[in-house]
Design a protein around this nucleic acid. Structure first.
Length: 944
RNA sequence: GCUCGAGUGGUGGAAUUGGUAGACACGUUGGACUUAAAAUCCAAUGGACAGUAAUGUCCGUGCGGGUUCAAGUCCCGCCUCGAGUACCA
């Protein structure tokens, strides 16, 4: 019997589903292990061979942990809200729920085909009301919380209210809006209800604010910073403009420091940690106040707050620069300069983000005509505006130290501002000196001769004494805008009374997404939900209450925005623990047992999106006591992308001839993608099939070499538009899921990007056939094994393999363990091994990688149960002990020969044996060695 | 510019973390079986040189230095590619 993978795979996939083999219980005496994949967005294109890479790796690990006796939670679900389904709906009128459902079914089929050990009873879909009920619930909890900086945690808003009632807000240290006014307890009591709500909104962890947002007119929605790449939208590449809008925001900045510190406690890849660290962008320095000098037409002294990381260079400040958008600009500008300044502000506001980015080298600015007073020297410092200072970072104003900062230096050069030197022994005639480490200060009054850190401390002390500033830590991280003007997302559980937001009471959750006629914004510019005439929400008892949003007398207006993509993915890992619970996001018992994720596998592209936001929500959940861990994933692995190998044909410019790649030479050609499925292993294009699939080329003239059209090759991202997509269904059909699983692992290190090459799969396919044969040594390939004890040689091969494979799994080196299996089977075949005591453990050993064939072999061996619950074979050192070993020997690092010596020889005996060795004597040529170096089990060196 | 990561045969990649570089696989070449093909099996496969041969010698992990009996691996200085990020004060 030959290896019939199609029947075997279908049979065991059915078996696993029918027997619920991988269902995990929330109660168990076993130790828990939680293996998580990033759940996919079910796109219409289905899976290509790149998608399952991480899923295969996590499945191997989950199966391995089951063999090791753990109760393993390995769930899967769908991040099913998202833009593509909505855009498809806009074009076709098809409800996004319908396309999403169809896509999910297709995904499920493809996933099932690969033999994953998911507990499908725990599936979640972010677009299911039963799921988004809890997304809405978390939103309400965030709304009802504030961040107490003194306790360094989030607390219920009621506590803040009782503080306000008792003593006002003067002593409160909280993360709140900048413009929060100070008030006493009596003033608080005197505020009317609306005013109190306005104030509280400045403290809540999710709040409404007029935010300058990234508005994408083409998509009709707001984008988060991480949804913009190079100034255009990540999806579609549409232009993005800045615009002020009232939006929900998440006060993630309250957690800046904890998000940073938490990284030290989790085993995540360094590049990912670096990306988050940079994104949070902590910088230490000082905030200082420069007062303006009273001018002739301007008697007021305005304070200008600046942030600097170099307070030590304060005596080098020869001007100040404000962002053109800075609120003081118009107040400060002198009459004489007004025309110039206004023209400049006008000019910068017209420059788009893109222009500014692509043109950073052009230095522009204008003098306001006003001066500030240096806090120490009392000298006049001219105040300029320039667009190299960003309104959104720090205070939007800087003290400019041209000798210590290249941007200030260039600006000073351009406008002829003096560049005083405050560095000892440094030449600044060509460029600024920005080296903190080698700084020794001069011409700097009380900090003369000091180094960077001493001077910083001295200056901060001095400004604090003068009450002109303080040491400050600044973060680049901004609060996250949480509103999207879209249909296909979670509705906010919010309605408005007198323009103030109110939460829908929890027992009315979920607030269902209403039906709409069309998915575009309304004529009045409201988000798509504005098209809904009827909203409904279910009470706990499932009484459906229908409420017309238009009928203002019975109900107040509802929030028409929906939540962004990352809302549904920020707590899904906890929801898997108890996914059908309707009374709580998860039971205490479930979270108590599962605690957190032990292994999380997914792409690094979520570094500053999902992976940051989910950490933020987890910390919030932790603060409020709902989860036991403030970091939810102990270990994370970023699998590398599998790239496509695109095929190109070359059209000559002018003639339009299609030239074979070997004949292109110096000719002017434009490369055109050809479908990789039409190209064979030796890069030859099937011209007939190509012409049939692309009518525009049906009459094209193909110039061949040796009668063949040879395509050019290039490695690119796998995508439909590049015609380089390889479909896993086709691979499974031809070689089977076990081959695909093994091959994806065999391609290279899990974390590395690597190109797909279908040709190579024959290697692992051949391996599986050899494995099969090992168990089928009977006449005409009938299953036959021996109950005789195995040879010591075969046992050695087996235990070598157990040891290596277990080491590999624990280091996630799945590629080398596939090689190890191949070596193992090659050796056992050569040894003609067919003994049960080797072949039985081997079936268990390979089952995480190739589960279908392992189950089949396990059954043939006479077992009734699934191999997946068998204990992992135990490695025994004794089978590996060798009688002797060949030692490589070098002499003076040059000559090398090998010497076979017993393993249990001591150091001195080895030395003696080496010297007695005839060849050694010859090579030493009568000289006496100085020393003999022995590294047991490895190598012997002789130093002459 | 800054921050990470990586450079090893024709190709994907191994190398027990300082100890015989190129495991394993693809591809290629030759052979066996076959009317033929597929499938399968066997052999060779980094380069150069010497030898009828077994075999031996030298050179080889992006480049240039260094440490060491011994370097793909450690140190210093470059080059190239990839990823992230960017007037962040």
């Amino acid at each position: 019997m030959s290896y019939q993978f199609r029947e075997i795979e279908a049979k065991w996939q059915r078996y696993w589903a029918e027997n619920q083999t991988f269902k995990a219980a929330n109660e168990s005496d076993k130790r828990k292990f939680y293996v998580l994949d990033m759940f996919p967005y079910p796109s219409g294109a289905g899976l290509h061979v790149g998608h399952p890479l991480g899923y295969i790796a996590s499945d191997i690990y989950a199966r391995y942990k089951r063999h090791k006796g753990y109760n393993v939670l390995h769930p899967m679900g769908y991040d099913s809200f998202g833009l593509p389904a909505e855009q498809y709906a806009i074009q076709t009128g098809q409800h996004p729920a319908i396309t999403t459902e169809a896509n999910i079914n297709r995904y499920r089929e493809q996933l099932d085909q690969l033999g994953f050990s998911y507990d499908w009873s725990r599936e979640v879909r972010t677009s299911n009301p039963g799921y988004y009920k809890w997304t809405q619930w978390i939103f309400i909890q965030l709304f009802n919380s504030w961040y107490n900086n003194r306790a360094d945690k989030a607390e219920p808003i009621e506590k803040l209210i009782s503080i306000f009632e008792a003593e006002g807000n003067k002593m409160v240290e909280a993360s709140c809006d900048e413009d929060t006014p100070l008030f006493s307890a009596t003033e608080w009591e005197a505020f009317d209800h609306r005013r109190q709500q306005e104030v509280l909104l400045k403290y809540r962890l999710t709040y409404l604010a007029d935010t300058e947002v990234n508005w994408c007119p083409a998509l009709g929605t707001v984008l988060a910073n991480d949804e913009i790449v190079n100034g255009v939208s990540e999806r579609g590449g549409h232009p993005v403009v800045r615009k002020k809008m009232t939006q929900w925001s998440m006060r993630i900045t309250a957690y800046s420091q904890r998000l940073l510190e938490g990284l030290d406690r989790i085993d995540w890849p360094q590049p990912l940690k670096d990306a988050q660290t940079n994104w949070i962008g902590r910088s230490e320095g000082a905030s200082m106040i420069f007062y303006t000098k009273p001018g002739q037409q301007n008697a007021t002294q305005y304070p200008i707050e600046v942030f600097t990381t170099r307070p030590d260079t304060i005596f080098g400040a020869s001007f100040m620069t404000l962002a053109p958008e800075h609120e003081l600009v118009s107040k400060l500008t002198s009459e004489k300069q007004r025309e110039e300044v206004e023209a400049y502000v006008e000019y910068t506001s017209k420059r788009s983000e893109r222009d500014r980015l692509s043109d950073v080298k052009t230095i522009t600015g204008a003098f306001t005509g006003a001066y500030a007073i240096h806090p120490f020297t009392g000298e006049d410092i001219p105040i300029w505006i320039g667009d190299y200072v960003l309104a959104g970072y720090g205070t939007g104003a800087v003290m400019s130290v041209p000798c210590g900062d290249q941007r200030d230096y260039d600006f000073a050069r351009k406008f002829g501002i003096p560049i005083p030197n405050i560095f000892k022994g440094v030449d600044i005639s060509e460029e600024a000196f920005a080296d903190k480490v080698n700084t020794v200060l001069a011409n700097s009054d009380f900090i003369d001769g000091m180094n960077y850190s001493d001077a910083c401390r001295a200056v901060i002390d001095a400004v604090e004494k003068k009450e002109l500033g303080k040491g400050k830590v600044n973060y680049r991280l901004r609060d996250a805008v949480f509103s999207r003007q879209r249909y296909w997302g979670e509705p906010f559980p919010v309605y408005y009374v007198d323009g103030m937001p109110q939460m829908i009471s929890e027992e009315h959750l979920p607030l269902h997404l209403p039906e709409v006629e069309k998915y575009l914004p309304t004529e009045t510019g409201d988000p798509p939900l504005g098209n809904a005439s009827v909203w409904a929400w279910c009470t706990k008892t499932n009484n459906v209450v229908e409420i017309s949003k238009i009928d203002q007398e019975t109900i107040f207006p509802l929030e028409l925005n929906t939540m962004p993509g990352w809302a549904g993915s920020s707590q899904y890992f906890n929801r898997y623990m108890d996914p059908s619970n309707d009374n709580a996001i998860f039971s205490e018992q479930a979270i108590d047992y599962w605690q957190d994720v032990d292994l999380y596998i997914g792409g690094i592209e979520h570094a500053t999106g999902h992976l940051l936001y989910s950490r933020f929500w987890q910390k919030f959940m932790y603060d409020r006591g709902w989860v036991p861990k403030d970091e939810y994933a102990k270990k994370l692995i970023n699998q590398g992308m599998i790239l496509g190998t695109s095929a190109f044909i070359y059209r000559e410019e002018g003639s339009g001839k299609i030239i074979s790649s070997g004949l292109v030479g110096d000719k002017k050609v434009s490369p055109i993608h050809a479908d990789v499925s039409l190209v064979n292993a030796s890069d030859e294009l099937d011209i007939k099939a190509f012409k049939a699939s692309r009518p525009e080329f049906s009459t094209a003239d193909f110039v061949l070499e040796d009668g063949k059209y040879i395509v050019g090759r290039e490695v690119e991202k796998m995508s439909k538009s590049k015609f380089n997509v390889v479909n896993p269904d086709a691979i499974c059909e031809e070689y089977g899921a076990d081959s695909l699983r093994l091959y994806e692992m065999f391609l290279g290190p899990l974390e590395q990007a690597k190109p797909w090459n279908t040709a190579g799969i024959s290697g692992v396919y051949g391996f599986l056939k050899k494995l099969w044969k090992l168990y089928h040594g009977g006449p005409e390939g009938v299953f036959m094994i021996s109950d005789e004890p195995a040879t010591s040689e075969a046992l050695k091969t087996l235990h070598k393999t157990i040891k290596k494979v277990e080491e590999d799994i624990n280091q996630f080196s799945f590629n080398t363990s596939v090689s190890t299996f191949m070596i193992c089977v090659n050796e056992l075949s050569a040894q003609k091994c067919n003994q049960r005591d080797v072949l039985e453990p081997l079936a268990v050993l390979i089952s995480p990688y190739a589960p279908h064939i392992a189950e089949e072999l396990w059954q043939l061996l006479g077992n009734n149960s699934s191999v997946s619950t068998e204990p992992f074979p135990e490695f025994k050192e004794e089978y590996l002990v060798e009688r002797s070993k060949a030692y490589p020997i070098s002499f003076n690092g040059k000559m090398r020969f090998t010497l076979e010596l017993p393993l249990d020889m001591g150091k001195e005996e080895i030395e003696k044996a080496v010297l007695e060795h005839e060849k050694t004597r010859k090579q030493l040529q009568g000289r006496t060695p100085k020393k003999v170096i022995v590294v047991p089990g490895r190598i012997v060196n002789i130093v002459g």
